[in-house]
Amino acid sequence: MKIKEEIKDGVMVIRLSGKVISGPDLMDLKGVFQTAVGNAEGNVLLDLGHVAWMDSSGLGVLVSGHTSLAREGGRMAILNATKKIHELFIITKLITIFETFTDEGEALSSLKE
C-alpha cells in the first residue's frame, strides 16, 4: 500500500493505492490518522480510487480513524471507492456511516461546511 498526504482547501487528503490489508503498512496508515486527529482542521478526505483490495484489518483502521475524528469533532469522507471496496462497505453496513463521494471538489466543499 502507498500513502500520500496533502492539505487541500484546509482538508487533509489521504490518497491510498494498492492493497489495504494486514501488515506493517497499516501501522503507517494508523499513524496518518492519528496525525489527522491532532490536526487543527480535523477533517479527512480518504481517496480510495486506486485501492483494489481491503481486508477486515484495513476496514478496522478506517473505522477507527472515522470514530477518532468524530470524537474530536472532525469528519472523514471517502472519495472514489472502487466497485469492490464499495461492495465491501455495503456488506459490512459501513456504507451507513461513511460519507462517500465521486467528485473531489464536491467532497472538499462538503467537508469545509
Binding site: S56, L59, H66, T92, K93, I97
Partner: peptide
C-alpha cells in the same frame, strides 16, 4: 452479520463476513 450501533463502529469482527 454486521452489527448495529456500537458493534457497527467496532474496529474488529468482520473477518468471517468478508
Amino acid at each position: 452479520e454486521p452489527g448495529e450501533g456500537e458493534a457497527l463502529i467496532s474496529s474488529r469482527g468482520r473477518g468471517v463476513l468478508i
